[in-house]
């Protein structure tokens, strides 16, 4: 009895703490009063080169945004004077900002993610030209600057479901930590959006042609069960990131890649709700590519076998039906003529 009371009051205190913590930091985020100007409706400039540029940051939207706890100058580091300099650098996500991780009290930054991205297939490659490297997605390509996107409660709820897929074993404490830390920044996207985001480059021939990347991967995914079931709303199937990771995306021939021959079995079975105890044989099944006579002759010929079998059978059956029907029409016509 006393333990339940104890637990309940613990939750109450925890909840109260979270509530106050967020409301305080939300106020702190505009401690430097940027919204005095930037909160004005239609605040912006018109230049001959860029056209209209909006600098409006609605305070209501900002309060509900991913970065609501971060003061503006944590990211816009070179805006130190008023009036602001004409040319400012673009925001870099790996810069350390002045908020701390919930429950950890350590400084927070996206350095870890940026470092993983740098060595991933999406990072800069010294052998590539600048132009080619610029075609790689940077942080902001995938994490669109979302200060105008409000985080709604139902989105949070759905996202925490997504967390539970991996963190089932870590208990409630782990979940609370996870959800509370994620509620501070952008939460896991719905799988459909992940596929859409990755497809925006990987299904685009003009963007992919300079890289040695198989263009059939997106179409191949959509032909397989994961892709089809996802389109029908089955959220638990694997999206791109579930197998390829989020930041440390590496090509299959890299020994550290999650889809390397030696790691793929682990990848298939790693998520609690995915293919638990996946065997090595299970993991080699091609889940993507469009079968050709070269890369997957067995499936290629099975598919064609079925096409020929179906078309051939239907042609014969149709012919039989049409002839049968023709005889009936002829008979009926002759009977009428006799009358």
């Amino acid at each position: 009895m006393s333990t339940t009371i104890c637990k309940r009051s613990l939750f109450f205190i925890l909840g109260y703490f979270l509530l106050t913590a967020f409301s305080v930091s939300a106020q702190q985020a505009d401690a430097e009063n940027c919204n005095l100007c930037h909160g004005l409706a239609l605040f912006g400039i018109a230049t001959p080169s860029d056209g209209l540029r909006s600098f409006e940051v609605t305070s209501e939207a900002y309060k509900h945004s991913t970065h609501r706890n971060v003061i503006c100058r944590d990211c816009h580091t070179d805006i130190n004077a008023f009036p602001h300099p004409e040319e400012v650098k673009k925001v870099e996500c790996s810069k350390a900002c002045h908020i701390s991780k919930p429950f950890a009290l350590t400084g927070y930054s996206h350095v870890q993610q940026a470092e993983a991205h740098a060595i991933s297939a999406h990072g800069s490659n010294p052998e590539y030209s600048d132009e080619k490297n610029a075609a790689h997605p940077d942080c902001k390509y995938c994490h669109s600057n979302s200060f105008r996107n409000e985080i709604k409660d139902e989105v949070l709820e759905k996202s925490s479901q997504h967390c539970l897929r991996c963190h089932e074993g870590e208990g409630l404490a782990g979940v609370i930590l996870h959800v509370s830390s994620h509620s501070g920044h952008r939460t896991a996207e719905a799988s459909v959006k992940v596929v859409k985001l990755c497809s925006s480059c990987h299904a685009d021939q003009s963007r992919m042609k300079q890289f040695d990347v198989n263009l059939t991967q997106v179409a191949g995914y959509e032909r397989q069960f994961h892709g089809k079931a996802l389109k029908r709303g089955l959220d638990e199937v694997a999206n791109c990131m579930d197998c390829h990771r989020n930041h440390l995306i590496l090509p299959a021939d890299d020994p550290n890649s999650s889809i390397n021959r030696n790691n793929i079995q682990q990848t298939c079975s790693s998520n609690g709700s995915c293919h638990t105890n996946a065997t090595a044989k299970f993991a080699v099944a091609a889940i993507h590519s469009e079968p050709t006579t070269q890369n997957n002759p067995i499936i290629f010929f099975v598919e064609w076998g079925f096409i020929i079998l179906t078309a051939g059978t239907m042609a014969l059956l149709f012919a039989h039906i049409l002839l049968d029907f023709g005889r009936w029409v002829g008979d009926t016509w002759m009977r009428r003529k006799e009358k």
Partner: peptide
């Protein structure tokens, strides 16, 4: 997963194609 303990992985792919195409037939 259970099938793959005693049959090669290609069987799963064949089953996927066959189930879908034979259903149509």
């Amino acid at each position: 997963v259970q099938v793959s303990t005693f049959l090669p992985g290609i069987v799963i792919q064949i089953a996927y194609v066959a189930h879908s195409d034979e259903a149509m037939l």
